[in-house]
Amino acid sequence: MKRSSAAAAALTLLMLGGCAQKPGPQPGFKDQGALPYVQAHGLKVEVQLPPTFVGASTVIDTKAAQAAATSSYNMVASSGNSAGLAGVLVASLVNTQMGSGTLQRDAEKAALNEARPMADLLAGVPLQERLQQRYKQASQVAGFKQGEGQVTARLVIEPKLMLTPDRGSFVLINQVQVQDIAGSALYRMRIEVVSQPIRRCGKECIDDGSLDLAKVTAALDECIDESMRVLSTDLMQPPPPPAAQETLRYVLDGQRVVERGYQLATNGSYWRYRNLYGAVKSVPVPFEDAMSQAQLQKVYAH
Rank of each mutant, 00 (worst) to 15 (best):
V94W: 04
P159M: 12
E204N: 15
E259D: 05
L172T: 07
L264T: 12
M189E: 14
V45M: 06
Q48D: 07
V38M: 01
D289N: 15
G99P: 02
K30V: 08
Q128W: 04
V125E: 06
V258S: 08
A9P: 00
S71F: 09
R200F: 10
L14F: 12
E148Y: 05
P23G: 10
N95F: 11
G17A: 13
A91C: 04
L13C: 11
A185F: 07
I60Q: 14
R105N: 13
C201N: 11
P51A: 12
L89K: 03
V258D: 04
Q295T: 09
Q133L: 11
D234Y: 10
V141L: 11
Q237N: 07
D225T: 07
A123V: 09
R256N: 03
T96S: 09
E226C: 05
G24A: 15
L186C: 10
N113K: 12
P238C: 13
E246V: 01
I157V: 15
V125R: 09
L43S: 04
P242N: 03
P51F: 06
S210Y: 01
T217I: 08
G268I: 09
Q175F: 07
T266V: 09
A8D: 02
D234W: 08
M98N: 04
Q150T: 10
V280M: 06
V216W: 04
G99C: 06
L276N: 05
V94I: 13
I173R: 10
A68R: 13
P241L: 01
Q21I: 07
V45P: 02
G143R: 13
N74L: 05
Q128M: 02
G55Q: 10
G55W: 02
E46T: 08
R188S: 05
A138N: 03
V258Q: 03
S282D: 00
A214I: 11
K2D: 13
G33E: 13
G28D: 00
V76Q: 02
N275D: 13
Q245F: 00
Q245L: 03
E158D: 04
E288F: 14
R274L: 00
E114V: 12
G147M: 03
G18E: 12
Q32E: 14
E222G: 08
L276R: 06
A67N: 01
E288K: 12
R188W: 11
V283N: 01
A86N: 01
M228L: 11
Q21C: 04
N74D: 13
K2A: 14
K109E: 05
D180M: 09
L131R: 06
L186R: 15
V156A: 09
P159I: 11
R260A: 02
E226Y: 04
P284K: 07
E246Q: 05
C201H: 08
G84I: 07
I157R: 08
I198R: 03
A40L: 10
V59D: 00
G149A: 06
R3I: 14
L127M: 15
R256V: 12
